[in-house]
Nucleic acid binder design. Sequence first.
DNA 1: TTGCAGTCAATATC
DNA 2: GATATTGACTGCAA
Length: 551
Amino acid sequence: GSVSDMLSRPKPWSKLTQKGREPFIRMQLWLNGELGQGVLPVQGQQQGPVLHSVTSLQDPLQQGCVSSESTPKTSASCSPAPESPMSSSESVKSLTELVQQPCPPIETSKDSKPPEPSDPPASDSQPATPLPLSGHSALSIQELVAMSPELDTYGITKRVKEVLTDNNLGQRLFGETILGLTQGSVSDLLARPKPWHKLSLKGREPFVRMQLWLNDPNNVEKLMDMKRMEKKAYMKRRHSSVSDSQPCEPPSVGIDYSQGASPQPQHQLKKPRVVLAPEEKEALKRAYQQKPYPSPKTIEELATQLNLKTSTVINWFHNYRSRIRRELFIEEIQAGSQGQAGASDSPSARSGRAAPSSEGDSCDGVEAAEGPGAADAEESGGPAAAAKSQGGPAEAAAAPEEREEAPRPAEKAEPPPSGTPVPDAAADEGRPRAPPPPPEGPADGPGPVPNPAAAAPAAGEDAATSAAPPGEGPCRARDGADRSSALPSTSAPAAARRPSSLQSLFGLPEAAGARDSRDNPLRKKKAANLNSIIHRLEKAASREEPIEWEF
DNA sequence: TTGCAGTCAATATC
DNA sequence: GATATTGACTGCAA
């Protein structure tokens, strides 16, 4: 009866509870041939047993091991027993396979080679999990992502970086082999991970892959093998190519996971990459500070003045907004981590916004803000942006004001590039829509600006302006922390939130990641900026429409 | 249409 | 040679 009902009136995925999704996952697995008939211990009645194993899926993911209960027969619990053949009933085989090795913490040392019994010595073929997950695998990863608990993206990337660095493994290799991403994407991801709750399903995929990889005791070995193989292939090719005149093939020594997948033959006709001159960037930044969301007309003007294509200007704004947003995330995470040491919640969670109610309130001063920079930041957009990123409602309200107040200090000294446009700055200030105001202290651009060079100079300047009282900074940071604790990350599905299990599951030191302090002065400044921004926002808020502030 | 997320891939930098 | 940066593109959602 249940089946009939389900088949005839399936509910949309989004409306299903985790449990409710199980049958669909099973169906999908079955469709993919992953579930052999009878595999499921349907022992018993239509009731529960069947679902059991799937239920365990979540844990395996998280913990990296199959919960014993799921499979009555194999009591193989989480013991790191490698390869412990999961009982067939592990219907979820495909999923668990991804997890490969249970819980073992990643070894950072190259030498450590976990005895890997049954695992096909990576040595011979079968390199690490080929990314281009084929068929079911791909599906599995998606399922894993869907069911994955909230992950500490920051911590994960930190660990991945450590492992890669310690073992001298490159991002390209890792990206292509493990994540299915290009080197640039990997670099970006590792350097600026977004908090889990801010990621879309797709965006979470790389993190789940990383976590799975971290959980694989043979991860390093496999990658090393890959590396060796690549080298061999490269040498081979090189030799042969020497003899052949063959216009060098794509040297992408890469894993050929590309075969068939995406042949990308035609190389020619590529248009040259546009490289904006420093002055152009400056002008654009300035324009951005005044108007993060320029109207088509403004864009036109900018394009004309800078002699760029409008599409280039549009793209620039898109990219800039998006990148600044990410910078903010990092800041939040770092600030949060600084403020609190062992919080139970993950940094990512922490960063999360959301907490409508707790946000603004307190600012006690935590030491978050680093001195120097503190001042500079704020600028106009900053606040708003910040708010936005946080997701809090506050942002909306605040943003406008903030901006108004903040005189955009922007003008850093530099002579505005010739035609720095900056049309209606004023206008947009109030603009309701203004979503994410540039977090960075737009003012001097520097702050959030990814580009250190640019930022640096400015930073110092407005410190004064920002006037962020020393105490403030901390506030922000702390604020973040509090927030998190106070409220569960917004997005995180309740189910997902299970601190304890999470930790054990992934074996992540949780907060650890957050801790990482790249003592990048620039970052500190940014953090300081944020703090000051918050402060100003609060001031403004109290002054004007307190009511609106719903932190 | 517009904005965004996620990526790619060219190029810059280390 | 590896990694970081960044302009451009794709797909999706509102």
